[in-house]
Design a protein around this nucleic acid. Structure first.
Lengths: 345, 345
DNA sequence: ATTAGCACTCGTTGCAGGAAAGTGCTAATA
DNA sequence: TATTAGCACTTTCCTGCAACGAGTGCTAAT
């Protein structure tokens, strides 16, 4: 357990280092604010904190910088409960006041605004449309045996995919099939629209329909699109380049390569069952490329169910409290907006 | 006019410099291939070429590098007519053998493959679906006065957008409206689906339909989506970081920022009325950020009409002939594939 | 428990000197 | 007349070295 004075010192070191990116020396600290301590005393405390693993020393005659453990302690115990400034709040409220129809645009915008506010790289994930319900399924023949299957949700999202039907299926059979599917599926929430319901449906449809394999194919393709449609938006990538720890091209390159190819996202920002802000410092991310980065993410919900998340990625030397507050607030506002969109007319 | 020997020297300098990124000296050249010339002779020729503006000298005691004018001359007069190697050809053919249904995926893939092949950053633009024809228009009510307007083309592309209808419009009126629109518009190529046809339609529909403003609104929104749908795909961004001229973060940053926000693309890669490869070296790009970059782009066509382009962006020190050949070939194969997709069943 | 003082360590900066690469010019050569 | 060999000159790059500054750890004094 750290003494209050140790906590204070750690806290000031983190704040100072986050700001300046320079190792913090004892003299700097002794002059800080209302410390009535001399540099020597602080040196002793810092030596202790280093021994305990909360501080690192880049080399013998440099100041101290927080270790990963130090950041972790800071986030868990020392982070202040302050408020967001009015300007930031206003920017976020403004952002989510816009129409929620076109998710693509909202996600893009969110990502842009968050990177502007935080000056880090932003990731916007989702939303899974699993909370929405099937409004209508359409099958539009294109000639040959090709057709486009279209699924519309009650919130107005549209998913579509080309499918190849059996060659010999007559047009009226297709009509019957679509009618049947709509009858059976309209109103079904998409989270039930998975492999589970196929067996149910297969027997049910099999009795009535001749070409029920085609019907299943259509559903299968649509299910694929639905599952793929949790897209990832990455914004403010170049903010990384402003961070002094990434002034070296060889250091940024692996990181940018990772950001360009976003399959890693689920590993780092998996949908948490609970809403709330999560902080992963350095190694805690699991990925070697991110060992000197921190990822902070927040899950947002629709009607209480987590459907997506927003996150920020930057160096471990990060403005923890500010980013945490921003993401906390943003995810709340986003949850409200998305819920309203689904429920409201 | 350059003498044959000057041409040869310029050509070798470009080839060598493109490869090594180091200024080329007279001694290096004199040892090159079947030159029977001494370094001194070459020095004289190089001095002439510099005077003529085809070469630059970074500083007094360094070798020479090609100037923009030098590259331009190389591209226009010295570029060899060689063939692509089999491996590259195979990769491209493989790429376009896949299904052309989901344009998004094809574009993404094209961009990835081209950046792998060229080791530069790739831009894939389009295609404008203007060549495709309207297959069907749908309007699916969502409750309230909201609805989703959906447009399907004969090639199976789907465009959709939410619209807000008048509050008092009855369901059967909507059905009549959609029926009418389909009757009138099915088969219309999308390039005619612009503001031009509204006036025509307005009078025509106005006679039959009570709520014809709604019909026009729907068309208007769909037209917007159709026009927006020429998306830009950028791939291989991080390849830039491997180029020695961009080892400095301050040099890459503006470039990456530009690539992150691709509104500049139309300025640099506007759709050319003619098919073919276009090379823009340095200043020729117009944009100050690109003054030390070359953009090479090729337009691809559907049934002879230019609909989109693929391009590569890298330092002026670029493998001109290889990239030109790759883009030339890629755009041809892409044209064939897209045309086949539209025509074929 | 705190502080002042001091020797020590390590990174940074500036500078001199020499090697390497390349040029321009002049004089010799075919 | 075109080409070449030779040489002095320029500029960059590297290396070693000394001076400096920031910061520490330790000891002794308060």
């Amino acid at each position: 357990m750290l003494t209050p004075r140790q906590q204070l010192i750690l806290s000031v070191i983190v704040d100072d280092y986050v700001q300046s990116a320079e190792p913090v020396g004892s003299r700097t600290l002794s002059k800080h604010e209302h410390f009535h301590l001399s540099a020597a005393t602080i040196r002793n405390e810092m030596a202790d904190l280093e021994q305990l693993g909360y501080l690192d020393q880049p080399h013998a005659s440099a100041g101290r910088i927080p270790s990963q453990k130090g950041y972790r302690y800071y986030v868990d115990h020392l982070s202040s409960e302050g408020r967001l400034d009015g300007e930031t709040v206003r920017a976020l409220q403004e952002l989510f006041r816009q129409r929620m129809d076109e998710w693509e645009r909202v996600a893009q915008q969110t990502s842009t605004v968050l990177s502007q506010l935080t000056q880090y790289t932003t990731i916007v994930l989702g939303p899974h449309i699993h909370q929405e319900r099937i409004k209508q399924i359409q099958l539009i023949p294109l000639g040959g045996a090709k057709a486009v299957a279209i699924l519309v949700t009650d919130a107005g999202q549209v998913a579509s995919r080309q499918v190849q039907l059996s060659d010999d299926i007559p047009a009226e059979q297709v009509a019957v099939m679509v009618h049947l599917l709509n009858q059976r599926l309209t109103g079904t929430p998409l989270f039930r629209f998975g492999s589970l319901m196929y067996k149910e449906l297969a027997s049910e449809i099999g009795n009535v329909l001749e070409h029920y394999e085609d019907a299943l194919l259509v559903l299968d393709e649509l299910a694929k699109v639905v599952n793929e449609n949790q897209r990832v938006f990455v914004g403010g990538t170049t903010n990384i380049l402003s961070q002094p720890e990434f002034r070296d091209v060889d250091k940024v390159k692996p990181l940018l390569e990772m950001l360009e190819q976003p399959d890693w996202v689920p590993a780092v920002m998996s949908l948490q069952p609970k809403a709330g802000v999560e902080v992963r410092i350095g190694m805690e991310n699991g990925l070697p490329t991110l060992q000197s980065c921190t990822v902070i993410s927040a899950t947002y919900t629709v009607a209480g169910v987590p459907v997506g998340s927003v996150g920020v990625i930057g160096p471990t030397r990060m403005h923890y409290d500010r980013v945490i507050r921003i993401l906390d607030y943003a995810s709340q506002v986003l949850s409200h907006a998305m819920t309203a969109r689904l429920a409201g007319k």
